[in-house]
Design a protein around this nucleic acid. Structure first.
Lengths: 150, 150
DNA sequence: GAAATAATGTTGTAAATACAACAAAATATC
DNA sequence: GATATTTTGTTGTATTTACAACATTATTTC
């Protein structure tokens, strides 16, 4: 059994750690960059969908987003037709930080993929997307309280 | 720019979340499975190396390991030649939990890799190892307090 | 259209995570 | 071999994370 998932875990933790350190200088605390980029790129998204997108607990997302709001990076707007939801938008301050997050993200991509050919990068992306789709099915299943059988 | 690293982040968070939920029934709290498998597979490893292996902060590893010890999953043994280090070993209780962790890990691998051919799995493993090696260089660099330039 | 269920959001609480600062032993440097 | 540096480990503190439980609105079912 090739330990593919352990490799993925190592990569993810290392990169997250790097990002958290680097974004401190933009006053983003641990994890916040994850939410802010996605809100900038998916303006009007609601908290619930954002949590699903990031694969993080609903309540964790709730608090991270609240903090982004308090610190003026994003704002929540009520919807006229649906009183339950709050759409998320970056503020000007949030938009201003976005390029730094993107640049860091791009740089980490370049570093991570050093030595891989264009074709290998395409292959990696394709394979990882398929793995992610497989995994998110189980994630939904387990998060909803169901028990995997194995 | 293909968002390869975001795919990796999603996969890693989803799997970690699943594992944490599933290992609760073996009295392992969040993250502990990461350390315990590796101690079982690398008996006598020291805390510092384990943190590097997992890509987690030294102090986080210290506390996770302390908790594993308190709960009787592992033990720390002093070295006769080096007073500074403490080698880590699973206890019988730890060894007994190991098969469950391994089975869960294997099952998640199967789920994650569903639909991929043997050849694709080999390719994925190869590419991910290379990405991991690239990323860990920067992780070491940044964790030591250096600043990446980009 | 009333009742049941699902979707979305919040808060209380417990625990993990990581940074900073420290201590002690080992190793390197002069 | 004394001194400086590195390695390894710990503890104080702040913050994030996630589970449980709840509230409210929307949607489905009868």
């Amino acid at each position: 059994m090739k330990e593919i998932l352990r490799e993925i875990g190592m990569i993810a933790r290392a990169l997250d750690s790097i990002s958290n350190i680097e974004f401190k200088e933009h006053d983003l605390t641990k994890g916040q960059y994850l939410y802010l980029v996605r809100i900038c790129e998916n303006q009007g998204i609601i908290q619930e969908k954002l949590a699903e997108m990031i694969k993080v607990d609903r309540t964790t997302a709730a608090r991270a987003i609240k903090k982004l709001e308090i610190n003026g990076f994003i704002e929540k707007r009520s919807d006229t037709h649906n009183k339950k939801i709050k759409k998320l938008f970056p503020t000007e301050k949030g938009e201003n930080v976005y390029p730094f997050i993107k640049r860091e993200d791009d740089y980490s991509n370049v570093v991570a993929l050093a030595g891989l050919s264009e074709e290998e990068i395409d292959t990696a992306f394709n394979l990882l997307q398929r793995i992610r789709r497989n995994v998110e099915i189980d994630w939904d299943y387990v998060k909803k309280g169901n028990k995997r059988n194995y």
